[in-house]
Simulated assay, not measured.
Amino acid sequence: MRIGLVGFGFGGQKFHLPYIQAVPDWEIAGVVTRSPQRRAELAAAAAGVPAVDDLDALIDLGVDAVVITTPPQTRRELVLRALARGVHVVADKPFAPDAQVAREMAAAAEQAGRLLTVFHNRRWDTDLRTAAEVLADGAIGTPWRAVNRFDLDEPGTLEVGPAHGLLRDLGSHLVDQMTHLFGPVARVDAHLDLVEVEGHQVDAGFVVALHHASGVHSTVSASKINHLAERELVLWGSQGAYTSRMRDVQTDAILRGEHPATAADWGREQPERWGVLHTADGARPVPSAAGDYAEFYRRLHASVAEGAPLAVLLDEAIHTVEITDAARLSALEGRTVELR
């Protein structure tokens, strides 16, 4: 089946193209980019794949699905146009600036009879996959609490504007990770680190407390301008705890020039950085699971070709936007926000 990329910036190049290439069931039909530099980069990364000027030109090449990787403020228009043209759509995160727009796009997909999903690829992060195995094994008993922290030393990449901010960006991933592990969220408390950039108040950091309907309490946090680069994932349960400080394994490998289609033992952390399980029997390292963002595209193909369930359901993606909406409201009004 044929798939096209709309946009070829850092995300298109590093988080989408290599993982589509790693799934032989997909043929890359073309990429939308007008930049001469991006077109040269495309020729180097995917020889023979044509570059076109816009979404309609891409669809005219003949595609089953398109991936929208352009900036957030362009998301709605491009998703709606692609659905109207009759193709399946993958939207990058943040899915929408608010839940109302997310529901509008979901309704358009239903009306068009086409699949719409969101690239919450960090469900397949190495640390999260390992933590999911710890939970599935019952190693810590009944889960009680979790902390999920992802600090970045990238002040120059903070996006500004009404559709931007770190909460909607990286926060979408961290929230999705926690709902993926512990289920829907009933209420939210949040704090935002607000800074003024180019005349806009934008969140450069956040802490969000999620009260899951399952009874688990999780906290997600991140920063981008504080010159701190660390990851931390901690789980507490009735029989013990699990701690992890694994790196962003797949992204690090991509930036080293490795490729998921050819690298050996893709997506595993080195033993010296494995997480640690703490129980009455003592502390022991837990071998790294294999993270693999290509799984998103394998499952997308199965959904389009065979009618299998999507890896990221629209209701889940909308709930993530509802949570980030609630977090922003909680921070700005200084109160707990309950979700329906």
Results as ranks from 00 to 15, higher is better:
N121W: 13
I68K: 01
V101Y: 00
T251Y: 13
E196Y: 05
N226P: 04
A47L: 09
V63T: 06
P285G: 02
L55I: 06
G165D: 07
E230Q: 15
A139Q: 02
D252E: 14
T117I: 02
A222C: 07
R256Y: 04
A222T: 07
T251H: 14
L313F: 05
V6F: 03
D127N: 11
T69P: 13
H120T: 10
T336R: 09
A45D: 09
V79C: 06
S214E: 06
L61T: 08
N121A: 15
E104M: 10
T33N: 11
L17N: 05
S218D: 05
V89K: 03
L332V: 14
G307R: 08
R123H: 15
A99M: 04
V234N: 07
V249M: 04
L152W: 11
P155L: 12
R122M: 13
R335E: 09
P143R: 00
G205V: 07
R247W: 10
G291S: 02
H259S: 04
A305K: 05
W26Y: 07
N226W: 14
F182W: 05
L42I: 11
T117A: 04
E322R: 12
G4C: 04
T70S: 07
D325G: 06
G165A: 08
V188G: 01
A106W: 10
P94Y: 12
Q177L: 00
P18W: 07
A57Q: 14
T33L: 03
G257I: 12
T336D: 00
L329S: 12
P287H: 04
V31P: 14
Q177W: 04
A241Q: 13
H227R: 14
V286M: 02
V52I: 01
K93Y: 04
S244W: 09
V118R: 02
L135C: 10
A283Q: 09
H217I: 14
L235G: 01
T126L: 07
L167Y: 00
V304K: 06
Q201R: 14
A305T: 10
L128K: 08
Y242T: 03
S218H: 01
A51R: 01
L181F: 05
A47I: 03
A289Y: 12
V220Q: 02
S221G: 11
H120A: 13
A241R: 15
D125W: 00
V304D: 08
E322M: 10
A91K: 11
V31C: 09
V276K: 11
H278W: 11
T126H: 05
H191W: 15
H173P: 03
W236D: 15
D56T: 13
